[in-house]
Design a protein around this nucleic acid. Sequence first.
DNA 1: AGAAACAGGACTAAAAAAGTCTTGACAGAA
DNA 2: TTCTGTCAAGACTTTTTTAGTCCTGTTTCT
Lengths: 131, 131
Amino acid sequence: MFKINRKTEYALRGLRYLANSRTNEPVMIREIAQKVDASPVFLAKIFQLLNAAGLVTSSRGVVGGFRLSRPPEQINLREIVEATEGPVSVNLCVVDEDACDLTKTCAAHKVWRQVRYSINKMLEQITLKEL
Amino acid sequence: MFKINRKTEYALRGLRYLANSRTNEPVMIREIAQKVDASPVFLAKIFQLLNAAGLVTSSRGVVGGFRLSRPPEQINLREIVEATEGPVSVNLCVVDEDACDLTKTCAAHKVWRQVRYSINKMLEQITLKEL
DNA sequence: AGAAACAGGACTAAAAAAGTCTTGACAGAA
DNA sequence: TTCTGTCAAGACTTTTTTAGTCCTGTTTCT
Protein backbone atom coordinates (compact mmCIF):
# COMPACT_ATOMS: atom_id res chain seq x y z
CA MET A 1 0.00 0.00 0.00
CA PHE A 2 1.06 3.53 -0.66
CA LYS A 3 3.85 2.45 -2.92
CA ILE A 4 4.48 4.42 -6.07
CA ASN A 5 5.00 2.31 -9.14
CA ARG A 6 7.78 2.31 -11.65
CA LYS A 7 5.94 4.56 -14.03
CA THR A 8 5.85 7.29 -11.44
CA GLU A 9 9.39 6.59 -10.45
CA TYR A 10 10.67 7.04 -13.97
CA ALA A 11 8.46 10.06 -14.48
CA LEU A 12 9.99 11.71 -11.45
CA ARG A 13 13.49 10.92 -12.53
CA GLY A 14 12.83 12.24 -16.00
CA LEU A 15 11.22 15.41 -14.73
CA ARG A 16 14.08 15.95 -12.35
CA TYR A 17 16.44 15.70 -15.23
CA LEU A 18 14.52 18.31 -17.20
CA ALA A 19 14.29 20.56 -14.19
CA ASN A 20 18.02 20.46 -13.74
CA SER A 21 18.87 21.25 -17.33
CA ARG A 22 18.75 24.99 -16.87
CA THR A 23 17.96 25.89 -20.45
CA ASN A 24 14.42 25.05 -21.43
CA GLU A 25 15.31 23.58 -24.81
CA PRO A 26 13.50 20.38 -25.78
CA VAL A 27 15.39 17.27 -24.74
CA MET A 28 14.74 14.13 -26.66
CA ILE A 29 13.46 11.06 -24.94
CA ARG A 30 16.48 9.00 -25.83
CA GLU A 31 18.75 11.32 -23.92
CA ILE A 32 16.48 11.42 -20.89
CA ALA A 33 16.14 7.65 -20.87
CA GLN A 34 19.85 7.20 -20.97
CA LYS A 35 20.55 9.61 -18.14
CA VAL A 36 17.78 8.19 -16.06
CA ASP A 37 18.54 4.57 -16.80
CA ALA A 38 15.20 3.52 -18.27
CA SER A 39 14.06 1.91 -21.49
CA PRO A 40 13.52 4.67 -24.07
CA VAL A 41 10.34 3.09 -25.40
CA PHE A 42 8.81 2.77 -21.98
CA LEU A 43 9.85 6.23 -20.94
CA ALA A 44 8.33 7.59 -24.12
CA LYS A 45 4.99 6.15 -23.05
CA ILE A 46 5.32 7.79 -19.68
CA PHE A 47 6.14 11.15 -21.18
CA GLN A 48 3.08 10.88 -23.35
CA LEU A 49 1.09 10.79 -20.14
CA LEU A 50 2.94 13.75 -18.72
CA ASN A 51 2.34 15.60 -21.94
CA ALA A 52 -1.37 14.82 -21.86
CA ALA A 53 -1.49 16.09 -18.30
CA GLY A 54 0.12 19.32 -19.38
CA LEU A 55 3.23 18.92 -17.28
CA VAL A 56 5.60 18.75 -20.21
CA THR A 57 5.33 20.05 -23.74
CA SER A 58 6.44 17.93 -26.64
CA SER A 59 7.69 19.06 -29.98
CA ARG A 60 8.34 16.86 -32.96
CA GLY A 61 10.74 16.97 -35.77
CA VAL A 62 14.44 16.94 -35.90
CA VAL A 63 15.06 19.27 -33.00
CA GLY A 64 12.08 17.98 -31.07
CA GLY A 65 11.84 16.58 -27.59
CA PHE A 66 10.27 17.39 -24.24
CA ARG A 67 10.54 20.32 -21.94
CA LEU A 68 8.74 21.35 -18.78
CA SER A 69 5.56 23.30 -19.39
CA ARG A 70 6.06 25.26 -16.18
CA PRO A 71 8.93 26.06 -13.85
CA PRO A 72 9.71 23.24 -11.40
CA GLU A 73 8.33 25.08 -8.39
CA GLN A 74 4.92 25.13 -10.06
CA ILE A 75 4.69 21.41 -10.60
CA ASN A 76 3.60 19.46 -7.57
CA LEU A 77 3.78 15.83 -6.67
CA ARG A 78 0.08 15.29 -6.82
CA GLU A 79 -0.06 16.31 -10.46
CA ILE A 80 2.76 13.98 -11.34
CA VAL A 81 1.29 11.01 -9.52
CA GLU A 82 -2.13 11.60 -10.99
CA ALA A 83 -0.68 11.84 -14.47
CA THR A 84 0.95 8.45 -14.26
CA GLU A 85 -1.36 6.52 -11.95
CA GLY A 86 -4.66 8.30 -12.03
CA PRO A 87 -6.32 9.95 -9.06
CA VAL A 88 -5.62 8.76 -5.55
CA SER A 89 -8.44 6.56 -4.44
CA VAL A 90 -8.06 4.70 -1.21
CA ASN A 91 -11.25 2.75 -1.43
CA LEU A 92 -14.86 3.01 -2.36
CA CYS A 93 -16.43 1.50 0.68
CA VAL A 94 -15.32 -0.88 3.37
CA VAL A 95 -18.71 -2.26 4.07
CA ASP A 96 -20.13 -3.39 0.79
CA GLU A 97 -19.54 -1.79 -2.55
CA ASP A 98 -23.12 -2.12 -3.63
CA ALA A 99 -24.87 -1.41 -0.39
CA CYS A 100 -22.98 1.82 0.07
CA ASP A 101 -24.69 4.89 -1.25
CA LEU A 102 -21.35 6.67 -1.48
CA THR A 103 -22.58 10.01 -0.32
CA LYS A 104 -23.85 9.82 3.23
CA THR A 105 -24.15 7.89 6.47
CA CYS A 106 -21.48 5.28 5.69
CA ALA A 107 -18.91 6.05 8.37
CA ALA A 108 -16.12 4.10 6.78
CA HIS A 109 -16.59 5.92 3.56
CA LYS A 110 -16.27 9.24 5.30
CA VAL A 111 -13.03 8.17 6.87
CA TRP A 112 -11.56 7.16 3.53
CA ARG A 113 -12.50 10.46 1.97
CA GLN A 114 -10.71 12.15 4.80
CA VAL A 115 -7.60 10.06 4.30
CA ARG A 116 -7.59 10.71 0.60
CA TYR A 117 -8.01 14.40 1.12
CA SER A 118 -5.10 14.58 3.52
CA ILE A 119 -2.86 12.65 1.20
CA ASN A 120 -3.69 14.93 -1.69
CA LYS A 121 -3.02 18.02 0.37
CA MET A 122 0.30 16.63 1.41
CA LEU A 123 1.35 15.76 -2.11
CA GLU A 124 0.36 19.19 -3.35
CA GLN A 125 2.74 20.82 -0.96
CA ILE A 126 5.74 19.14 -2.51
CA THR A 127 6.97 20.57 -5.77
CA LEU A 128 9.38 19.26 -8.32
CA LYS A 129 11.86 21.82 -7.12
CA GLU A 130 12.06 20.19 -3.70
CA LEU A 131 13.05 16.96 -5.32
CA MET B 1 -1.45 4.47 -5.86
CA PHE B 2 -2.69 4.59 -2.31
CA LYS B 3 -5.29 1.97 -2.91
CA ILE B 4 -5.87 -0.62 -0.25
CA ASN B 5 -6.10 -4.14 -1.55
CA ARG B 6 -8.77 -6.73 -1.06
CA LYS B 7 -6.97 -8.39 1.78
CA THR B 8 -7.19 -5.22 3.79
CA GLU B 9 -10.72 -4.65 2.69
CA TYR B 10 -11.86 -8.05 3.93
CA ALA B 11 -9.84 -7.67 7.09
CA LEU B 12 -11.62 -4.43 7.85
CA ARG B 13 -15.02 -5.89 7.16
CA GLY B 14 -14.28 -8.89 9.33
CA LEU B 15 -12.97 -6.80 12.16
CA ARG B 16 -15.97 -4.55 11.93
CA TYR B 17 -18.16 -7.56 12.27
CA LEU B 18 -16.33 -8.72 15.37
CA ALA B 19 -16.41 -5.24 16.82
CA ASN B 20 -20.15 -5.06 16.40
CA SER B 21 -20.87 -8.41 17.98
CA ARG B 22 -21.06 -7.07 21.49
CA THR B 23 -20.17 -10.28 23.30
CA ASN B 24 -16.54 -11.19 22.94
CA GLU B 25 -17.16 -14.87 22.27
CA PRO B 26 -15.07 -16.46 19.52
CA VAL B 27 -16.76 -16.33 16.16
CA MET B 28 -15.76 -18.91 13.62
CA ILE B 29 -14.34 -17.87 10.29
CA ARG B 30 -17.15 -19.45 8.34
CA GLU B 31 -19.69 -17.18 9.98
CA ILE B 32 -17.60 -14.08 9.48
CA ALA B 33 -16.96 -14.94 5.86
CA GLN B 34 -20.63 -15.39 5.21
CA LYS B 35 -21.64 -12.12 6.81
CA VAL B 36 -18.90 -10.25 5.09
CA ASP B 37 -19.34 -11.90 1.72
CA ALA B 38 -15.88 -13.36 1.28
CA SER B 39 -14.46 -16.79 0.57
CA PRO B 40 -14.00 -18.59 3.90
CA VAL B 41 -10.65 -20.04 2.89
CA PHE B 42 -9.28 -16.71 1.85
CA LEU B 43 -10.62 -14.94 4.88
CA ALA B 44 -9.02 -17.58 7.06
CA LYS B 45 -5.66 -16.65 5.60
CA ILE B 46 -6.29 -13.04 6.36
CA PHE B 47 -7.28 -13.73 9.91
CA GLN B 48 -4.11 -15.70 10.38
CA LEU B 49 -2.27 -12.49 9.62
CA LEU B 50 -4.40 -10.51 12.02
CA ASN B 51 -3.78 -13.15 14.65
CA ALA B 52 -0.02 -13.02 14.09
CA ALA B 53 -0.19 -9.25 14.44
CA GLY B 54 -1.98 -9.62 17.76
CA LEU B 55 -5.15 -7.90 16.66
CA VAL B 56 -7.33 -10.95 17.08
CA THR B 57 -7.01 -14.04 19.20
CA SER B 58 -7.80 -17.44 17.79
CA SER B 59 -8.99 -20.51 19.62
CA ARG B 60 -9.38 -23.96 18.17
CA GLY B 61 -11.69 -26.80 18.79
CA VAL B 62 -15.38 -27.14 18.58
CA VAL B 63 -16.23 -23.80 20.13
CA GLY B 64 -13.25 -22.09 18.56
CA GLY B 65 -13.05 -19.03 16.38
CA PHE B 66 -11.70 -15.51 16.45
CA ARG B 67 -12.29 -12.58 18.72
CA LEU B 68 -10.73 -9.15 19.04
CA SER B 69 -7.67 -9.04 21.28
CA ARG B 70 -8.48 -5.49 22.33
CA PRO B 71 -11.48 -3.21 22.37
CA PRO B 72 -12.18 -1.57 18.99
CA GLU B 73 -11.08 1.88 20.09
CA GLN B 74 -7.62 0.52 20.77
CA ILE B 75 -7.09 -0.89 17.31
CA ASN B 76 -6.02 1.64 14.74
CA LEU B 77 -5.97 1.60 10.99
CA ARG B 78 -2.23 1.57 10.72
CA GLU B 79 -2.00 -1.69 12.63
CA ILE B 80 -4.58 -3.29 10.42
CA VAL B 81 -3.01 -2.16 7.20
CA GLU B 82 0.44 -3.21 8.32
CA ALA B 83 -0.86 -6.60 9.34
CA THR B 84 -2.25 -7.34 5.91
CA GLU B 85 0.07 -5.43 3.60
CA GLY B 86 3.28 -4.87 5.50
CA PRO B 87 4.64 -1.48 6.46
CA VAL B 88 3.83 1.56 4.39
CA SER B 89 6.74 2.31 2.11
CA VAL B 90 6.32 4.91 -0.52
CA ASN B 91 9.63 4.42 -2.21
CA LEU B 92 13.25 3.87 -1.55
CA CYS B 93 14.74 6.53 -3.73
CA VAL B 94 13.61 8.47 -6.74
CA VAL B 95 17.02 9.06 -8.08
CA ASP B 96 18.69 5.71 -8.31
CA GLU B 97 18.24 2.84 -5.95
CA ASP B 98 21.92 2.03 -5.87
CA ALA B 99 23.40 5.49 -5.97
CA CYS B 100 21.33 6.62 -3.02
CA ASP B 101 22.97 6.25 0.35
CA LEU B 102 19.57 6.21 2.02
CA THR B 103 20.53 8.25 5.02
CA LYS B 104 21.58 11.72 4.00
CA THR B 105 21.70 14.40 1.34
CA CYS B 106 19.25 12.75 -1.07
CA ALA B 107 16.46 15.31 -1.11
CA ALA B 108 13.90 13.08 -2.73
CA HIS B 109 14.44 10.45 -0.13
CA LYS B 110 13.83 12.94 2.64
CA VAL B 111 10.55 13.95 1.05
CA TRP B 112 9.35 10.37 0.85
CA ARG B 113 10.17 9.77 4.49
CA GLN B 114 8.11 12.78 5.31
CA VAL B 115 5.18 11.56 3.27
CA ARG B 116 5.34 8.14 4.82
CA TYR B 117 5.50 9.59 8.29
CA SER B 118 2.44 11.75 7.71
CA ILE B 119 0.46 8.88 6.32
CA ASN B 120 1.31 6.70 9.28
CA LYS B 121 0.30 9.41 11.72
CA MET B 122 -2.96 9.83 9.95
CA LEU B 123 -3.76 6.15 9.93
CA GLU B 124 -2.93 5.87 13.59
CA GLN B 125 -5.57 8.41 14.45
CA ILE B 126 -8.35 6.31 13.04
CA THR B 127 -9.53 3.41 15.17
CA LEU B 128 -11.72 0.47 14.41
CA LYS B 129 -14.42 2.11 16.44
CA GLU B 130 -14.68 5.00 14.00
CA LEU B 131 -15.37 2.59 11.23
C1' DA C 1 11.20 14.85 -50.33
C1' DG C 2 13.46 12.91 -46.44
C1' DA C 3 15.35 12.38 -41.92
C1' DA C 4 14.43 12.62 -37.12
C1' DA C 5 11.60 13.12 -33.58
C1' DC C 6 7.03 12.05 -30.94
C1' DA C 7 1.97 9.50 -30.97
C1' DG C 8 -0.53 5.71 -30.07
C1' DG C 9 -2.66 1.20 -30.51
C1' DA C 10 -1.86 -3.80 -30.29
C1' DC C 11 0.70 -7.05 -28.39
C1' DT C 12 3.68 -9.92 -25.02
C1' DA C 13 6.02 -10.85 -20.71
C1' DA C 14 6.62 -10.60 -15.93
C1' DA C 15 5.14 -9.85 -11.42
C1' DA C 16 1.84 -9.44 -7.88
C1' DA C 17 -2.52 -10.38 -5.93
C1' DA C 18 -6.30 -13.40 -5.22
C1' DG C 19 -7.91 -17.59 -4.29
C1' DT C 20 -7.80 -22.96 -3.66
C1' DC C 21 -6.22 -27.46 -1.88
C1' DT C 22 -4.32 -30.48 1.22
C1' DT C 23 -2.40 -32.01 5.33
C1' DG C 24 -1.65 -31.37 10.06
C1' DA C 25 -2.26 -29.70 14.89
C1' DC C 26 -5.15 -28.60 18.58
C1' DA C 27 -9.31 -28.47 21.77
C1' DG C 28 -13.21 -30.24 23.68
C1' DA C 29 -16.95 -33.67 24.23
C1' DA C 30 -18.70 -38.32 24.21
C1' DT D 1 -9.25 -42.51 24.06
C1' DT D 2 -11.35 -41.37 19.95
C1' DC D 3 -14.11 -38.53 17.18
C1' DT D 4 -15.56 -34.11 15.47
C1' DG D 5 -14.93 -29.48 14.38
C1' DT D 6 -12.03 -25.72 14.49
C1' DC D 7 -7.68 -23.04 13.10
C1' DA D 8 -2.49 -23.36 10.95
C1' DA D 9 0.33 -23.31 7.17
C1' DG D 10 2.64 -24.38 3.03
C1' DA D 11 2.22 -25.56 -1.87
C1' DC D 12 -0.23 -24.71 -5.68
C1' DT D 13 -3.22 -22.45 -9.41
C1' DT D 14 -5.66 -18.70 -11.42
C1' DT D 15 -6.52 -13.98 -12.30
C1' DT D 16 -5.33 -9.27 -12.57
C1' DT D 17 -2.16 -5.64 -12.91
C1' DT D 18 2.06 -3.72 -14.23
C1' DA D 19 5.93 -3.46 -17.20
C1' DG D 20 7.78 -3.46 -21.40
C1' DT D 21 8.00 -4.14 -26.73
C1' DC D 22 6.76 -3.57 -31.61
C1' DC D 23 5.04 -1.50 -35.40
C1' DT D 24 2.93 2.00 -38.07
C1' DG D 25 1.69 6.68 -38.45
C1' DT D 26 2.10 11.82 -37.96
C1' DT D 27 4.56 16.01 -37.39
C1' DT D 28 8.41 19.26 -38.12
C1' DC D 29 12.46 21.00 -39.82
C1' DT D 30 15.99 21.08 -43.36
